[in-house]
Design a protein around this nucleic acid. Structure first.
Length: 659
RNA sequence: GCCGGGAUAGCUCAGACGGCAGAGCAGCUCACUCGUAAUGAGCAGGUCCGGGGUUCGAGUCCCCGUCCCGGCUCCA
């Protein structure tokens, strides 16, 4: 029949329908269950409403709630319900944009008279949303001319701005925009400008929760108006919502700021200043182990160790370009030696590279010395804007495991390749094994160097990244001012991605500092620089590990590896000997004496509060037969009567294998 | 930097209206000496973030600052 169309389903089967059939009807023809679950449809890869008539042969997939597309539609529709609720409860409220996001949705509003939402408002709004959902309001798509759209949203300046921005060429000539209307009894319909698609009715929603209210700039422009954003989460079922909320709780449980205080690892004394951490003995111990291990690996990988001061005269950062490009992120200068004239300006260093360059430049270099790899745990200070500091992951003073590799242009790619292998191995040694790479290209606003140099450097990084067999994502414009970078993103135990290592290729600073080496041809050549930090910063990496392990550091990193608990005072001499023995073998041991508390309470403290890997309880039987009772973290039942030597061997093996 | 919220004992928090600053846990002391996730009793613990102001009187109200939290913007 001429008026029939052929629909190809996801399993590649085909069915014939009259032209104008809707996806809803297709779903019905496939099965009742599917028809009931259907939210929207994908037609040749594009999402459309269920009542969107099919007018040509197409691949059609019915989208159900528990799919990524399905969740996105649920969230997007929930955002509309949020906007409806807010406009109902707050007459005169203006609504701006309300997209689905990862895990939920938000909507940006502007209330009359600069009013703000409170937490109580959030509850009222959520209540109104539940009413709207119970009212079973349909979502009705409408297409109108742009001019009509401008009229319909006469009192909604943000909507008008969006409509005005719609490019004629994008909407297929007709300059048509789409709206979604929720008809309802007793009130004017709620209408929102929207591309769609949406669920057929508000009754399809429900497993949602409003989360918080926050400020957000209109169109992400910090010079534009500040709107009020309400965040919510929405899922296909109450169970999925509960699971999501549970994941949030789990993330909170792992929060390094909370664990840092609980485990007595570090703090941020108010007296010191925002974003400036002090590490306490236990945190300092973990940090020292991390650094020591890193040093050993770097030494084995052919790095030389250097050090440099924390401050320097302004001239150095003028030459490097930092004062021109990076000054906003630098602490203001201090003027010294002011006796005669205006004095000399010194800056706290925001980066270590200029110092390493001066070390390179301290004498003529031969090609035989290259690649020259200069490594330093270099502490840098960056003047982060006051609102952005966050625990150890965003600070104003940090120590980078920083190195600068000076090499020839010919060797650059090989060096990058071996460097990436080195990075992934080192991160793996700390228990991070799930990576992807991100390639950051030339920033559009601030960058030094020619496009050709940027292209060459970017291509070199890309080709090496491609060889690693890891997922590679593009971060357009995310490079530093002097060069593109690859960053290694590591996924932690609960699947969150953290940026750790960065590797930057730099043709600019060698030129700015006029660096050379003498080649085999006895001519002077310009070296290439690679900037790289593998932990990123020790502080941030520390935080990542803390969250990854939820505070339960593996034995080789744990600040206290073993707690020895004598059952009663008469077991103290044996316990003391045991502690001495373990310490002599280089293990980190604490003794929790019998006078301190009951055995139960001491076990609880060591194992469940301090998260010590091994709790050793020693009593009469142990004294008699040179054994220990081993209560290992992560197990429920202790091993009784374990010979000391057996335990020591087990501990030594774990530390040696970095477990 | 911007919007909103906050800061009370080491920690978590309570303190309508402005009227003698509290609890639990942690700490210390004593008793208990106990075999693997909270023994009992007692004691001590405070610049109510700092500085100004209003008031007979301020933890509480107002202003300024510091720091923290959730976002935005920015980023290792």
């Amino acid at each position: 029949m001429a008026d029939d169309i052929t629909v190809t389903l996801p399993d590649d089967s085909t069915r014939s329908y009259p032209k104008g059939t809707t996806p809803a009807e297709v779903a019905v023809s496939i099965g009742r269950r599917l028809a009931k679950d259907a939210l929207v449809a994908s037609v040749d890869g594009e999402l459309v409403d269920l009542d969107h008539p099919l007018d040509h042969d197409a691949r059609v997939a019915i989208v159900t709630p528990a799919s990524p597309d399905g969740r996105e539609v649920l969230r997007h529709s929930s955002a509309h319900v949020l906007a409806q609720a807010v406009t109902d409860l707050f007459p005169g409220a203006r609504y701006a944009i309300g997209p689905a996001i990862d895990g939920g949705f938000y909507y940006d509003f502007e209330l009359p008279d600069d009013a703000h939402f409170t937490d109580d408002d959030l509850e009222r709004i959520e209540g109104r949303m539940r009413e709207i959902i119970a009212e079973d309001q349909p979502f009705v798509r409408e297409e109108v001319a742009r001019d009509e759209g401008l009229e319909r949203f006469a009192d909604q300046p943000y909507k008008r701005e969006i409509i005005a921005r719609v490019d004629d060429s994008e909407v297929g000539g007709g300059a048509v925009i789409s709206l979604y209307r929720n008809p309802r009894a007793g009130r004017a319909d709620f209408v929102d400008l929207c591309r769609g698609p949406h669920v057929s009715s508000t009754s399809r929603l429900g497993a949602f929760q409003l989360m918080r209210v926050a400020g957000a700039y209109w169109r992400a422009d910090e010079h534009g108006p500040m709107l009020q954003r309400i965040y919510g989460t929405a899922w296909e079922s109450p169970a999925a919502l509960a699971e999501h909320l549970h994941r949030l709780e789990e993330a909170e449980r792992r929060d390094h700021r909370r664990l840092g205080a609980e485990l007595d690892l570090f703090s941020f004394p108010e007296e010191v200043g925002s974003g400036l951490a002090v590490f306490h003995p236990k945190g300092g111990m973990v940090r020292t182990i991390m650094e020591d291990y890193s040093r050993r690996r770097h030494e084995a990988a052919g790095y030389s160790f250097v050090t440099s001061p924390h401050i320097t005269k302004a001239h150095l950062f003028e030459t490097s370009g930092h004062l021109e490009w990076f000054a906003d992120s630098m602490f203001p200068p201090m003027l010294v030696d002011e006796g005669s004239g205006e004095g000399t300006a010194y800056y706290l260093k925001p980066m270590n590279c200029p110092f390493h360059i001066l070390i390179y430049r301290s004498r003529t270099r031969s090609y035989r010395e290259l690649p020259m790899r200069l490594f330093e745990f270099g502490t840098v200070y960056r003047y982060e804007r006051s609102g952005v500091v966050h625990g150890l992951t965003r600070v104003r003073g940090m120590t980078q495991d920083d190195a600068h590799i000076f090499t020839t242009r010919e060797n650059m790619t090989a060096e990058l390749r071996s460097l990436l292998v080195f990075v992934l191995e080192l991160l793996g040694d700390f228990g991070l094994n799930d990576f992807y790479l991100e390639l950051s290209t030339k920033p559009s606003d601030k960058a030094v160097g020619t496009d050709e140099a940027w292209d060459e450097a970017t291509e070199a990084l890309r080709s090496v990244a491609m060889d690693m067999n890891l997922e590679l994502v593009l971060d357009e414009g995310g490079g530093a001012f002097y060069g593109p970078k690859i960053s290694v993103q590591a996924r932690d135990a609960i699947g969150r991605a953290w940026q750790v290592s960065t590797i930057q290729l730099d043709f600019q600073l060698p030129a700015r500092f006029d660096l050379h080496y003498v080649g085999a041809d006895n001519e002077r050549h310009r070296p290439v620089m690679i900037h790289r930090a593998l932990f990123g910063s020790i502080e941030r990496f520390f935080a990542i590990l803390l969250e990854h392990y939820a505070g339960a550091f593996p034995t080789w990193l744990a600040p206290v590896q073993v707690s020895v608990l004598p059952v009663a005072d008469r077991h103290h001499p044996y316990a003391d000997r045991l502690v001495e023995r373990l310490r002599a073998d280089g293990f980190r041991v604490e003794l929790l004496g019998a006078h301190e508390d009951t055995i139960k309470k001491r076990v609880r403290r060591a194992k469940h509060q301090e998260l010590v890997p091994y709790v050793l309880v020693v009593g009469d039987r142990d004294v008699e037969s040179e054994t220990v009772g081993v209560n290992a973290r992560g197990t429920d039942d202790p091993d009784y009567d374990v010979p000391v030597e057996t335990f020591v061997a087990r501990l030594a093996a774990e530390v040696a294998e970095r477990r």
